[in-house]
């Protein structure tokens, strides 16, 4: 069971709610993923509150825990205000903190991220920071009061999968007791299984599911891969070797010449 900020959840898949072909497909993907946590956002309302209201009710009906984000925020001030507004709407102290530093790669502004995290934890938020795999930044986030870390494995929406497995391995080794959720860059269930095998605690996905030909089926495929990866990690997988090792014992082998 995964524990984040004193909340126990069975599913190790956190699912984004954006870019699905329709609300009903989103709902079906959430159901088949068996996720207990979905990410949501806030945007300017232009139609008298009607469009946001429909989405709000859809999410409420799914019966899952909500993790609002600060996606699209490029400054500490924007991110902090968005977090406060999200808390006012969703009635949760949880916030997926994004402070974007680069338009093309959507790489986090890690300096702003740490500053915003410190402000928000001081105001009672439980911060889930979207960060890089930089160990020093991660240390600063923990010092700022974060109790979960969410390193990327590749740029948001890129579907590349883990581009720096060595960094992910090091990150896990440096923070053995911190819940680590790989956020961003996962493209396929095999990528999710890979990071789970490496000991990550959970995976946060969106585009890889929403952009699939059959999002609901892909959501289930990810759930299975994440469960398999977790089981494999607990079973302690072999490390790769440079040389062949015979799997069949050679002792007692007949000699025919």
């Amino acid at each position: 069971m995964l524990k984040v900020y004193d909340i126990d959840v069975q599913s190790r898949l956190l699912l984004g709610t954006a870019r699905y072909p329709s609300p009903s497909i989103l709902a079906e993907a959430v159901r088949r993923s068996k996720t207990e946590i979905v990410t949501v956002s806030l945007r300017r309302e232009t139609s008298g509150g009607k469009s946001g209201g429909a989405f709000f009710e859809l999410i409420r009906d799914l019966g899952v825990r909500v993790l609002p984000n600060t996606a699209g925020c490029h400054s500490v001030k924007e991110a902090v205000l968005t977090a406060k507004m999200a808390r006012d709407v969703f009635r949760t102290d949880w916030i997926k903190l994004e402070v974007i530093g680069h338009h093309d790669t959507l790489q986090p502004d890690v300096f702003g991220l740490v500053e915003a995290a410190r402000i928000l934890t001081g105001e009672g938020f439980k911060v889930f920071p979207y960060t890089t795999d930089d160990l020093v930044v991660a240390e600063r986030l923990l010092e700022a009061g974060c109790r979960v870390l969410m390193p990327w494995c590749a740029p948001i929406g890129s579907a590349m999968g883990p581009v720096n497995p060595t960094a992910l391995k090091s990150f896990r080794a440096h923070f053995p007791d911190v819940p680590l959720i790989v956020d961003a860059g996962i493209g396929r269930p095999s990528h999710a299984a890979e990071v789970m095998e490496r000991g990550y605690d959970a995976v946060l996905l969106n585009t890889a599911v929403a952009g699939a030909g059959d999002p609901a089926a892909m959501a289930e495929a990810f759930a299975l891969a994440i469960a398999a990866g977790r089981l494999a990690h607990k079973a302690v997988p072999l490390e790769p070797r440079d040389m062949a090792v015979p799997s069949t014992p050679v002792i007692g082998k007949a000699v025919f010449s």
Partner: peptide, 10 residues
């Protein structure tokens, strides 16, 4: 004045 409402997010 900013008036925001929920929407889909990742």
């Amino acid at each position: 004045i900013e008036i925001l409402s929920p929407m889909q997010g990742g």
